[in-house]
Write a protein that binds this DNA or RNA. Structure first.
Length: 327
DNA sequence: AAGAATCCCAACCGCAAGTTG
DNA sequence: GCAACTTGCGGTTGGGATTCT
């Protein structure tokens, strides 16, 4: 299938359209329809290629084009559809009457993508970004390395404790985010597996071997039906010792079966606690609605987004404080 | 006030699927 | 079945508009 020479043809005008050209194109299409786009320019008296004419008509001159800012409802629809369809702009445009694929694409690239990134989401996966978390093991190692390099006398009890707590906190936050991501993945019908296994956690030094053995059941989360029809992802998790330093004083324990918060139910026996992960069950993270699943969504494919009404991100204050611990 | 930086969007480019002879 | 042609799509860009310094 060869390429059409189209606009490469000599003498054809490129660039912005004049009002005269717009008028000629509109008049012709209103009278005759566009027919063959390739033949149209000549018939309409335009010194343009058919491709340029088609683009001008579909993106600008078409009478049913909706102009002006995108409404919040349209924004939500785009977010929802993009999470399902990806960069299928024409498919998304079919759900937004009067909007062109080009317009939606521009709106995505100039507004929505940036918005998602600012909010801590990967604009392609619509999940919390974990790129900086990839550096966490290195940060942990760095913190430990500093300890060695500085060769400080670690009989200084408080400094030592702070250092250890920071490292432990980093490990726990990393683990928490992995669990959170796993919950998001497990509740997403489009995903079937969790990428980070307990073995990997062990490999990066996140958990001790004893913790690993009790955490092995994490690789097989279970989805339970929650009280309000909201699915809950569950793992059998061990008690993990939470550091008690000032670093955590304002934070609630991350994994603690004895926590009285309703989302953490201590119904496991034999020293095991059942951790219930609903989408808002992890206290240190800042929750906010990524999409209000709403009314604009009517297709079956759109329903697939239904489980991700709220996704967590790291709060800025926590992130800053966390990073400052390693600075 | 002016130059620089950034934003925004219309339009172009190239690829690939669909159509036709 | 094949090649030429047409159409549609998604990524990218040029330059005007706007905001910042």
């Amino acid at each position: 299938m060869g390429r059409s020479p189209c606009c490469d043809e000599n003498g054809l005008k490129k660039g912005p359209w004049t009002s005269e050209e717009d008028q000629k194109l509109t008049d012709y299409i209103e009278k005759h329809g566009h027919g063959s786009w390739r033949a149209l320019p000549k018939l309409a008296g335009l010194n343009r290629c058919g491709k340029s004419c088609r683009l001008r008509w579909t993106n600008y001159l078409r009478p049913d084009i909706k102009r002006g800012k995108f409404t919040p409802e349209e924004e939500q629809t785009i977010l929802q559809l993009h999470s399902v369809l990806g960069n299928k702009w024409s498919a998304i445009a079919k759900h937004l009457p009067g909007r062109t694929d080009n317009e939606i694409k521009n709106f995505w690239n100039t507004h929505l993508k940036k918005k998602l990134i600012q909010m801590g989401f990967d604009p392609m996966t619509h999940r919390p970004r974990t790129d900086f978390l990839a550096a966490l093991p290195q940060l942990i190692a760095l913190a430990n390395l500093r300890q060695l390099v500085e060769q400080r006398p670690w009989d200084d009890q408080s400094a030592s404790q702070l250092q250890a707590d920071a490292v432990q906190a980093a490990k726990l936050e990393y683990l928490q985010c992995l669990l959170q991501s796993a919950a998001a993945i497990a509740t997403s019908p489009s995903s079937s597996s969790i990428n980070t296994s307990p073995t990997e956690l062990e490999q990066i030094g996140l958990l001790s071997p004893s913790q690993m053995s009790s955490l092995s059941s994490l690789s097989s989360p279970r989805i339970l039906e929650g009280v309000n029809g909201q699915d809950l992802v569950t793992w059998q998790v061990p008690d993990i010792q939470i550091p008690s330093s000032s670093f955590f004083e304002h934070e609630q324990p991350i994994i603690n079966g004895t926590n009285q918060n309703s989302d953490y139910s201590a119904n496991g026996g034999e020293g095991e606690k059942l951790l219930l992960l609903s989408e808002d069950s992890l206290p240190p993270l800042a929750d906010f609605p990524i999409s209000n699943l709403g009314d604009a969504c009517s297709t079956s494919s759109c329903e697939a987004v239904g489980n991700s009404t709220q996704l967590p991100i790291w709060s800025d204050s926590f992130y800053d404080e966390f990073m400052s611990e390693f600075a």
